[in-house]
Write a protein that binds this DNA or RNA. Structure first.
Length: 829
DNA sequence: GTCGGAACTTAGCAGGTTCTCG
DNA sequence: CGAGAACCTGCTAAGTTCCGAC
């Protein structure tokens, strides 16, 4: 860790580059929300049963909000409460760190960490090394890549550390290694791909391309009727269906065991559409009642097919894969301004049943097959028009270079437009991604002013202005979405501007309880301490309409809000606050949580925690896996087992040296969370497991002997072992009663102490894993990682702490974020 | 200004693949 | 070395924002 010489204290780092944006302190007022404080990190969880109780307490998603409330209560002042979750963490600090010993000294031994990276992944790390052949200039300037300022001349930085790495690698010239490097370089050459991010000055927003070529889209395969013995039943009898009808029945049949298929609205919508089609084809007998339909044989058939697919031979699987590859080769790429770029989703959406989320009124409706006649293509005039499937025509051809879509069609359920775009790793997506983050960074510079203005306006005489200010306050502090109006035919979800009376409640001094369904019908349930004036305002807004169903901000629309924001900064809209707050929170948390001289695992843990803060801020949730509680229970049991071991060790020590009880009272203390009943059962289990093991070993040994034509072991061998285990169990029972360990003299105090240490460590590890797991059960980190956190923060951090970013970003994300790889450890959001 | 539609970003889920642990 | 957890990717639904027609 001697290499840490270059590392400054994370926090101080921020100050250093101040001059660039003079008021970059502007985020301080909010900063309080993120203060987190290292203190919470140190809290040790005492009881492991704690999990159990919390779980019962927190049934819904209330765990978070509960803690948020209590946080808010005892934190002295205006912390805005979004710091909610921070208190909970603790215990985890270094638990996990122990596991992967291989990272231990990443600075001196990169070959080991490098080797962990599969070849394919290396590619993106390679370019880093290349420029090292040039004299590495002091490029540490500060990697600000401002729109106007011209970007650094070289592709990638060379930090001291990475050149060190390189040298080391070159010394090691095993041929395999050389070959590998060569391969990397070849791929690199191939990838001399126009690094648009080095040339962002003269970007004209409106024009997306000069030439655009592609092969059109792929259509869903034609329907293949089921074998004739597979039929849905109606009213108890198998019924023959025209393929067109059967297909729809199959859509439902294949998802029989899902929540969708159990949802009455889904059933109703499906059945309506199904019946309509069945009637067209004059199905006999006429299908009239959903309750009389029986799809089980279809369902079973699909299940079977699934099994078969899984059990396919390697060759068959490879074949299928190759076929897929071929199609991808054809449709999966477009040529934009002469450069090959990936297409995102080149396959038009296949027919099926619409899986609307939440209480979507149209969920279950039949999504029709898209035909070429419905699809319009967009490409340049010089591009050959891809031939539509035989016997078909395209709906139209456009040559609009202000649009980035390659194909579009209208979907029949909601009448919305669907598109085929380029992939996330394409230049077009990359450019807009980078612009998004640059805009958020621009907000960083102006946010102080903006906050000052809306804070003042919280007291404005004009109700509209007041509503607007309050809304912006919420958006800024709670990372709410704008909240457009929604139609009757959609799920009832809201964002900031569409919040209604019933979504907010107020509690005495200044606590705001929010509870509503947001995007994707994900519940937003938080309780936060708010600005006094915000509290007053909401009270006021609630008084006026005073009825469930009324808008909280009855005079405010998202367009008003965005217009207001635009006035203060061009391009500023509500969603920019989400990006800004997510990224800045991440950067701050990361600086706070990263242990300077930690192990790789500790650093990664810090990263994930910072990531989790952001996910919580943005309310990114996922459904708790069905067996989460089972898994938790397992860990609790594991810990108990460890505690039992600890208990036995202590008992041994006291048996060896009873006097120790006075000198070291902790040895005599009973383990928490270990009840006699449990111990009894556990001991029985242990012995039973040993017996089972013995039996298996015996059987295996004999098998081996037989194959080697030796005499089998006598059955009495096994019996003896089993008997001795029975005896051991009896001993344990005795020990339980007397508190004395029978064979204690096989140990020494020293050995016991050693073992104690090890057990303690393992318990700590397990506890940490448990906390981590529980905190993560319903939080999805991926969305914020992919959409909200400026990748340059990550890259800079990786550089600074010598973490290979393969450990953080998957291949897909690395490709998506390749534009960000120009920064070094000094870069700041 | 209001409305609806187009275009693009953000989102969770399902299912496949890889990793990990017993 | 096999089961189950974790992770990853693809899919497509559900948002936001902008813009143009009335």
């Amino acid at each position: 860790m001697s290499s840490s010489d270059s590392d400054d204290v994370p926090l101080s780092r921020r100050k250093q580059s101040k001059p660039i944006s003079s008021d970059d302190d502007s985020d301080v007022p909010l900063g309080k929300r993120r203060k987190t404080n290292g203190a919470s990190k140190l809290i040790k969880e005492e009881s492991d049963s704690d999990y159990g109780s919390r779980r019962t307490l927190s049934k819904a998603s209330s765990a978070r909000s509960t803690s948020s409330l209590s946080d808010a209560n005892d934190s002295s002042s205006d912390s805005s409460g979004s710091d909610v979750p921070l208190a909970k963490r603790g215990a985890t600090t270094n638990g996990r760190a122990k596991k992967p010993t291989s990272y231990k000294d990443e600075s001196s031994d990169d070959s080991s960490s490098e080797d962990e990276v599969p070849l394919a992944k290396k590619k993106s790390a390679a370019p880093k090394k290349k420029p090292a052949s040039k004299p590495a200039p002091a490029k540490k300037t500060n990697g600000k890549v401002k729109k106007e300022s011209s970007p650094p001349p070289t592709k990638r930085k060379t930090t001291a550390s990475s050149s060190k790495k390189r040298i080391k690698e070159e010394e090691d010239d095993s041929s395999a290694n050389r070959k590998r490097i060569k391969k990397e370089e070849e791929e690199d050459e191939k990838e001399q791909e126009h690094q648009w991010w080095l040339d962002m000055e003269n970007q004209d927003d409106s024009v997306k391309w000069t030439t655009l070529h592609h092969n059109g889209v792929m259509f869903a395969p034609d329907y293949v009727p089921l074998p004739s013995n597979i039929k849905m039943k109606y009213d108890g009898k198998p019924i023959s269906l025209a393929p067109e009808v059967e297909e729809i029945a199959g859509f439902f049949g294949s998802m029989l065991e899902t929540d969708h298929a159990r949802n009455p609205v889904f059933q109703k919508n499906f059945f309506n559409d199904f019946r309509k089609v069945a009637r067209q084809y004059k199905t006999q007998p006429e299908i009239k009642e959903f309750a009389k339909c029986d799809f089980t044989s279809m369902f079973e058939y699909f299940q079977e097919q699934r099994e078969k697919k899984k059990a396919m031979t390697k060759e068959d699987k490879a074949k299928i894969k190759a076929e897929k590859e071929a199609l991808k080769e054809k449709y999966g790429f477009a040529t934009l301004d002469g450069r090959k770029e990936k297409v995102g989703n080149f396959m038009v959406e296949p027919p099926g049943l619409f899986r609307g989320r939440g209480e979507h009124p149209k969920t279950g409706c039949l999504k029709l097959r898209v035909l070429p006649e419905m699809v319009t293509l967009n490409l340049s005039k010089d591009a050959p028009i891809p031939p539509p499937p035989a016997g078909h025509k395209w709906a139209g051809i456009e040559h609009d270079n202000t649009k980035s879509w390659l194909a579009t069609w209208k979907e029949n359920i909601n009448g919305s437009t669907k598109y085929v775009f380029l992939g996330a790793d394409s230049s077009l997506k990359g450019i807009s991604d980078m612009k998004k983050f640059e805009l958020a960074r621009e907000l960083k510079g102006k946010v102080k002013e903006i906050r000052a203005r809306y804070t003042a306006e919280l007291k404005d005489k004009v109700m509209f202005t007041r509503q607007r200010a309050t809304a912006v306050w919420l958006i800024d502090h709670l990372a709410l979405r704008a909240g457009n109006e929604k139609g009757q035919e959609e799920a009832d979800t809201v964002g900031c501007c569409s919040l209604r009376y019933e979504h907010v409640t107020l509690e005495k001094p200044n606590i705001l309880h929010l509870d509503f369904l947001g995007k994707d019908s994900i519940r937003f349930q938080k309780s936060v301490e708010v600005d006094d004036q915000v509290f007053k305002n909401i009270k006021l807004f609630k008084k006026e309409p005073a009825a469930v169903g009324d808008d909280l901000f009855d005079r405010l629309k998202t367009s008003d809000l965005n217009k207001y924001l635009q006035e203060q900064m061009p391009g500023l809209t509500a969603k920019v606050f989400r990006t800004y707050n997510a990224s800045i929170t991440f950067q701050e948390q990361l600086a706070l949580l990263t242990p300077k001289d930690g192990t790789m695992a500790e650093k990664l843990l810090a990263y994930n925690r910072a990531n989790r803060e952001v996910a919580i801020l943005c309310n990114h949730q996922r459904t708790v896996s069905k067996n989460h509680s089972v898994q938790m229970e397992k860990i609790v049991d594991k810990i108990r087992a460890l505690k039992y071991q600890r208990h036995k060790i202590k008992q041994t020590m006291l048996t060896l040296e009873p006097k120790l009880a006075k000198k070291r009272p902790e040895l005599a203390e009973p383990e928490s969370d270990l009840e006699d009943e449990w111990i009894e059962k556990h001991e029985e289990d242990l012995i039973e497991k040993d017996k089972e093991k013995a039996r298996q070993k015996f059987a295996k040994d004999n098998e081996k002997r037989q194959s080697e034509k030796e005499k089998p072991l006598p059955a009495s061998d096994l019996k003896d072992i089993l008997k001795s285990l029975d005896a051991k169990l009896k001993d344990l029972v005795k020990e339980r009663k007397t508190g004395k360990v029978i064979n204690a003299d096989k140990f020494t105090i020293e050995r016991c102490d050693n073992n104690l240490l090890k057990i303690d460590e393992r318990i700590a590890t397990q506890r940490a894993a448990m906390v981590d797991k529980d905190e993560n059960k319903s939080t999805a980190l991926s969305t914020s990682k992919m959409n909200y956190i400026d990748p340059r923060i990550t890259i800079a951090w990786c550089d600074k702490y010598e973490v290979p970013f393969e450990k953080i970003y998957t291949k897909t994300l690395r490709d998506k974020f390749k534009w960000a790889a120009v920064v070094d450890g000094s870069w700041e959001f």
